[in-house]
C-alpha cells in the first residue's frame, strides 16, 4: 500500500469494509449451519461448513490486515497494537450499548415485536458489561506496570 490517507477517501476503502462485513457474516453463517448439520447427524456437511468458516476467518483477518493502518471500519480508530485495539473495541461496544441497540429496540417496539425488542435490549446490556471490562483493562494498561501481570 502506498498512501494510507489517500486510501481512506477512495471507493476501495468502502469495498474493504464491505468485504470485511461480508466475510465475517459468512463465517458466522457457516458455523451456525455447521452446528445444525451436526445436530441433524450430517457430520460430513458439518465438517465442510467448519472448514469453510476457517477459510472465512482467514479472509476477514486478511482484510483487517489491509485496514489496519487506516482504522477499524466501525470506530475509525487505527488498529494494530493492543492499546489501540482496546480503544477501538471500547468505542464500538460503547456505540452499540448507547446508541445502536437502544434505537433498534425502540424500532422493534414500534413495529410490535416485543420479543425482538427484548433481544436487542439484552444485547445492549451485554455490551454495557463489555464496556466496563474493556475500560478497566485499558486503565490497567495505562498503569506504569503496563498492566500485564500474567
Amino acid at each position: 500500500m502506498t498512501n494510507i490517507t489517500e486510501l481512506q477517501s477512495l471507493p476501495t476503502f468502502e469495498n474493504l469494509k464491505t468485504s470485511l462485513a461480508f466475510e465475517a457474516r459468512a463465517v458466522l453463517r457457516f458455523l451456525y449451519f455447521a452446528k445444525i448439520a451436526e445436530i441433524e447427524g450430517l457430520h460430513g456437511v458439518a465438517q465442510l461448513f467448519e472448514e469453510m468458516a476457517e477459510g472465512g476467518i482467514c479472509c476477514s483477518h486478511g482484510t483487517l490486515d489491509l485496514l489496519r493502518h487506516v482504522g477499524d471500519p466501525d470506530s475509525d480508530i487505527p488498529i494494530g497494537e493492543t492499546n489501540s485495539n482496546l480503544r477501538s473495541a471500547l468505542q464500538v461496544e460503547m456505540q452499540a450499548f448507547e446508541a445502536i441497540y437502544p434505537a433498534m429496540a425502540a424500532t422493534a417496539r414500534e413495529d410490535r415485536y416485543p420479543d425482538i425488542a427484548s433481544w436487542f435490549e439484552t444485547l445492549a446490556k451485554l455490551k454495557r458489561s463489555h464496556v466496563e471490562t474493556l475500560r478497566k483493562t485499558l486503565e490497567a494498561m495505562r498503569q506504569p506496570s503496563g498492566g500485564e501481570e500474567q
Binding site: 427484548s118 433481544w119 439484552t122 444485547l123 446490556k125 451485554l126 454495557r128 458489561s129
Partner: peptide, 9 residues
C-alpha cells in the same frame, strides 16, 4: 447478570 442473559434468552 448481563453476561448470561443473551445465552439464557
Amino acid at each position: 447478570g448481563e453476561q448470561d442473559a443473551v445465552w439464557m434468552y
